[in-house]
Computed example of a mutant assay.
Amino acid sequence: MTATVALVDDDRNILTSLSVYLQAEGFLTRVYSDGETALKALTADPPDLAVFDIKMPRLDGLELLRRLREKSRLPVIFLTSKDDELDEAQGLAAGADDYIAKPFSPRLVAARIRAILRRVELTQPGGEAHADAAAPLARGRLTMDPARHRTTWGGEPVTLTVTEFLILETLAQRPGIVRTRNQLMDAAYSDDIYVDDRTIDSHIKRLRRKFRAVDPRFDAIETLYGAGYRFSDE
């Protein structure tokens, strides 16, 4: 079945270009230029996923998501300002599934949409939630449930984006084994998406910060300079 994606942004150039690209990738799209109109439409006839800009007049993306979460668990990706960690933190706290910083590649948006929709599919009746690839993972104090996109540390929940989840899952699958940045890129991004080393380093930094908010002594993600990263479950 063809997935429907709602795009909400007051920048019509972004709406048009992203909508055209996603349609070429096989998605159906709906576009809304303000949060108030989008809220009514998304509540009355939910799509499969929505992409929100955070900074919009009348009703910004954060408030739109808060109101939507009162009625729906619709998967949502936020578009944030470049390197604006406050936007990212607020978006995830409000219930966003992932975020992408502007300026962005339409290919990256399409890849993140597919990753999230795949995880949603795994949780549906008749999905592959019992397949080995989706089996829960336990490493020391860490538990990860790919089918439900849930992560805990010492029993405390840790909210991760899809990209962060995939990177951590790759590290935790084989504790003690060093993963290069290229290997982590391959795990988190589609083959046609290019990211540089600093992008992976930024994700690792955010992962550490999120786990240290739960456990200030968290040191399970180790850096091996010149080699990459590894996970320690000791």
Rank of each mutant, 00 (worst) to 15 (best):
K82D: 11
R179N: 15
H149V: 05
D60Y: 13
V178E: 09
S81Q: 11
N13F: 12
R66Q: 11
K205E: 02
A135Q: 09
A6D: 04
V120D: 10
R174S: 11
I200T: 03
L18V: 11
K55R: 15
I14R: 14
L42K: 03
S81Y: 12
V20M: 10
I77G: 09
M185K: 09
T163P: 02
L171R: 03
L42W: 01
F231I: 01
R139F: 04
T123E: 14
R206G: 00
G176W: 06
R208D: 04
S81W: 14
A38M: 04
R58F: 10
A187N: 02
T163N: 08
L39D: 02
R12V: 06
D83N: 14
R179C: 15
P157W: 02
E36K: 06
R114L: 07
L28N: 08
P103L: 11
L207G: 01
T170H: 09
I193L: 09
R208G: 04
A41S: 05
T143V: 06
Y229S: 06
V158R: 02
A188T: 05
T161K: 07
A6M: 03
V158K: 03
V195C: 01
G91V: 07
V109L: 11
L122Q: 12
A227H: 10
S232V: 04
A115T: 12
T223M: 03
A138Q: 11
D191Y: 00
L74Q: 15
K102Y: 10
D9Q: 06
R73D: 15
S72N: 15
K55N: 12
V20Q: 11
R30L: 06
G91D: 12
P146L: 05
R139I: 00
T199N: 03
P46M: 02
D9G: 08
I100R: 06
L184G: 04
D98I: 07
T43M: 05
K82N: 09
S33M: 02
Y194L: 03
G35W: 00
L49S: 07
P216E: 00
S72V: 01
D10W: 05
G61C: 14
R73E: 09
V195H: 00
R230D: 00
Q124W: 07
D53Y: 15
S72C: 09
L59P: 07
A187Y: 01
A24L: 07
R230C: 03
F52E: 02
